[in-house]
Design a protein around this nucleic acid. Structure first.
Lengths: 327, 327
DNA sequence: CTTGTATATCGTAGCGCTACGATTTTTGAG
DNA sequence: CTCAAAAATCGTAGCGCTACGATATACAAG
């Protein structure tokens, strides 16, 4: 920065001022400074700036995994809205592990971030204490229904399960199964199961649960479907933890020659692009992946801008049932 | 840090020393310092540290989009290998736009990163000049065959295209099509097309090209397949730019009652999980998504550790054809 | 009990920038 | 042309930490 100042024949303060508040510098010098910056290829040192101003343009986000279209869509939207406002996302993968999350919380907090976005409500004791001690704005996303640490943006997975139960019941399905990725990995799938099960059993139906070993896997799904149908020959419908698992069910039925809907109805979760094109088109639930990112950005920006009119801190975005021909 | 020093009754220097080189501090004081840190919930300020030591633990990564299982797998692997070494990933989405990439390069370079990972060889003039001016180690990934700016880790998409051509020809397919997402979005798909086309035509075959409007979309894929088959009734096989598009083709064929392989053979790219379970199981190409991340981490770490034995800067990881029953 | 050497601790300067008050220049009314 | 107020510019003091040389302490050998 010193070099730029020298070349533009102004003081370093003026260069800093120009960078921070360009309109506070006379147009004549502004031009000289910009020329010098371009000539020298000068890039301000973000760390020095952050240290001096003791606030940073970093916003941390912790997701269980980015290899998951749900979270990556949210992440992408978040970035799209936050970067233009000058913020930089710091993304961490907790890999569904509380202690890794804690490590990430430490690591991100040590950047003195302007905000921190977490996935879900489950955090280690220590994480919570670190989080509450710091006065960083916190957002918990992709769930709804608990108190939360600060702001909450998501939807209720229980309600989502109930929505599908309602749909199944309306279609006349009583004997159902929930086919899920491991609950340990995805606690939110468990919440959907609970809501689903509650309403199905309350209406006199039944729900069998099957969990995959790990992440979505269509081959393992096929095995589980065959096993399920041989154990419960009267099964009428399966609600899957996500669209990939539901695709696995559809494909297994095709392989076995079981007609979808007549022999077995299938619903997914995610409303991924391909669900509209399966044979038959798949019934699924659309989570507000992008909206979550959008609203988090809005709320965070309002909070950081000191906008006091924005008092809202908890947002339930809900889900939408996309009824197609597989149920 | 001052507080910690006071509570532990040592000087701030010793606290810093303990944090940086714990073994250089007597065990007695080490313990006192750790206790003080825990009691106060102290987190070192990364920016101050980075500024003072004038090196940072940041490694920037620019990908076109993280909503893509290829890049997100690489990203996840990269993080898994780099975080334990104390590095923090700074991820940016260029959204397939050269000028956005340039913005990201600026923004990341201003963090004075320890390394920068870019996707592909195509960068704006200005980006290249910024990149060469800085002495940050650079890695260009997910492609191979050009000189590159510094290190290169990926594979040749041309060769990949040739590999599929060879497979098609061996199976007796001569009249082929390449069904792609927009080349503007994915220049690497274009390279695969070129390699594929070259070897198909050299062997007396033909290749028709069709591009989707934007990102993979199974519905649009279906339309394109019907159009393709009505324009070219003698078409024998389609090589798709990715597995989702290939799934779209498979599903359209199912819908139309066209037997896969007898009427039309299909190959994808990605070897995503579900490809093994489609009906019939899909032939596809497996790119080294994880290996790319792994080797970048290794090479970067070697470079940053000043390991001079590690002289390798260009790595072709190749691809693997996964021949299944759709071809 | 020296003395030399290794080990542990500390003080100070400075990383590159911003905030803020001090100083200088510009502007426009009288 | 004068002078006060406004606008533009500048100087200085840190932000929280690390590096490094200076100092203090421990330890072993003579």
């Amino acid at each position: 920065m010193g070099e730029v100042a020298q070349l533009a024949d102004v003081s370093p303060s003026t260069v800093s001022l120009y960078l921070r508040h360009p309109d506070k510098v006379s147009s004549q010098r502004a031009e000289r400074i910009q020329t010098a910056i371009d000539r020298l290829g000068y890039l301000p040192n973000t760390m020095a700036g952050g240290l001096a101003s003791s606030r940073s343009n970093v916003i941390g986000v912790i997701v269980p995994t980015i290899t998951n279209s749900f979270f990556s869509a949210t992440l992408e939207t978040l970035e799209r809205h936050l970067r233009p406002a000058g913020y930089q996302l710091l993304i961490g993968n907790s890999e569904f592990d509380e202690s890794r999350e804690e490590e990430l919380v430490r690591s991100i907090l040590s950047w003195n971030p302007a905000g921190l976005v977490l996935t879900g409500f489950v955090h280690s004791r220590k994480s919570i204490s670190l989080l509450t001690k710091s006065d960083t704005p916190i957002v918990e996303m992709w769930d709804f229904g608990q108190k939360g640490l600060d702001m909450v943006v998501g939807f209720s997975h229980r309600t989502c399960g109930k929505l599908v139960a309602e749909h199944f019941l309306a279609k006349g399905y009583r004997k159902a199964a929930f086919l899920s990725t491991s609950f340990q990995r995805d606690i939110r799938a468990k919440e959907r199961y609970q809501g689903f099960r509650e309403d199905m059993t309350n209406a006199g139906g039944s729900v069998v649960l099957r969990e995959l070993q790990g992440r979505s896997n269509t081959a393992e799904t096929g095995d589980l479907v065959r096993e399920l149908l041989s154990d419960h020959a009267d099964l009428e419908a399966i609600f899957c933890a996500n669209d990939i698992v539901a695709l696995g069910v559809l494909l297994e039925c095709q392989r076995q020659g079981w007609p979808i809907r007549d022999r077995l109805a299938v619903a997914g979760f995610g409303n991924q692009d391909f669900t509209a094109s399966t044979v038959p088109p798949m019934t699924t639930v659309e989570p507000p992946s992008q909206e979550i990112g959008q609203h988090i950005a809005r709320m965070l920006l309002a909070r950081l801008g000191g906008d006091l009119t924005e008092q809202e801190t908890r947002l339930d975005l809900g889900v939408r049932l996309v009824a197609r021909e597989s149920t």
